[in-house]
């Protein structure tokens, strides 16, 4: 049972230090967290303090926010060697497509932002390049009324598409403070409300650990590992 929270934002982007996020996540039942600030680990507030929290794996990743596909490709090529987890902040169709076409990307996060449904072409590319689709469930907690209804409708269509093409799915709360964190069981319950099956939700929480394990190994080229 290796559950990971895959998209947390620590100080200065969030309001909590990495050690506080790790401490609360451990208490809630996670085996690890991935802190993926938009600026990577530059300007992070005391990242080494998290080493003091035992029995939880703290990984540093990055969530790339790009204004155009070209900038996205450049960023991914530059940052791949530095980070063990590369996420892309989706939302626009061209960014979603460019992220799904790049095998160096680990996950495309919130592709449904701005009521944008994931395109068929992008989904097929994600399947070929093994790019996971990350569903940020924070709007389910934060929004009320009609905006939440719209979000639920959009995410339901994305889930149907991901299920049809057998895409890998991740779920997260996108937490910026410890108030945003939810336990794995609560997150699975929220995911089921959004339209995922219980088995899919559990698998979605386990996927980041497997991706991290693969990325931490030293690959010389696709399929060739330095032992």
């Amino acid at each position: 049972m290796s559950f990971y929270e895959c998209n947390l934002h620590a100080l200065p982007e969030g309001s909590d230090s990495i050690s506080r996020l790790a401490f609360i996540s451990k208490r809630l039942g996670y085996n690890g967290i991935i802190v993926s600030n938009h600026t990577g680990f530059d300007n992070l507030f005391r990242p080494m303090a998290a080493l003091g929290i035992k029995d939880i794996d703290v990984a540093l990743g990055v969530e790339i926010v790009a204004s155009s596909p070209e900038k996205l490709r450049n960023c991914v090529s530059t940052l791949r060697a530095r980070y063990s987890f590369i996420a892309v902040h989706g939302g626009f169709e061209n960014i979603n497509r460019a992220a799904c076409e790049d095998p160096k990307v680990d996950v495309l996060l919130h592709p449904e932002e701005g009521r944008q449904v994931l395109g068929i072409a992008a989904a097929r590319s994600a399947e070929q390049n093994q790019v996971a689709i990350g569903f940020d469930l924070s709007p389910l907690i934060r929004l009320r009324g009609l905006p939440r209804v719209r979000w639920l409708e959009t995410i339901r269509r994305n889930i149907i598409l991901a299920r049809k093409l057998d895409l890998s799915i991740m779920i997260t709360t996108g937490g910026k403070s410890h108030f945003d964190l939810r336990s794995p069981k609560d997150l699975m319950a929220l995911a089921q409300l959004a339209g995922l099956e219980p088995v899919e939700a559990e698998e979605a929480l386990r996927l980041p650990a497997r991706i991290l394990e693969l990325n931490r190994r030293l690959w010389l080229s696709p399929g060739v590992e330095l032992l």
């Binding site: 934002h9 100080l11 200065p12 982007e13 969030g14 309001s15 909590d16 230090s17 050690s19 506080r20 996020l21 401490f23 451990k26 208490r27 507030f45 005391r46 303090a49 998290a50 003091g52 929290i53 035992k54 910026k176 403070s177 410890h178 108030f179």
Partner: peptide, 27 residues
């Protein structure tokens, strides 16, 4: 401005951030 955009009033820290933690502070 440190808490701007995160919906909270306070910053969440631990004693590990300040002076390396406590021996009994393991959750």
């Amino acid at each position: 401005s440190r808490i701007k955009g995160s919906d909270t009033r306070y910053l969440g820290l631990t004693s590990y951030d300040l002076y390396g933690g406590l021996d009994d502070a393991n959750g």
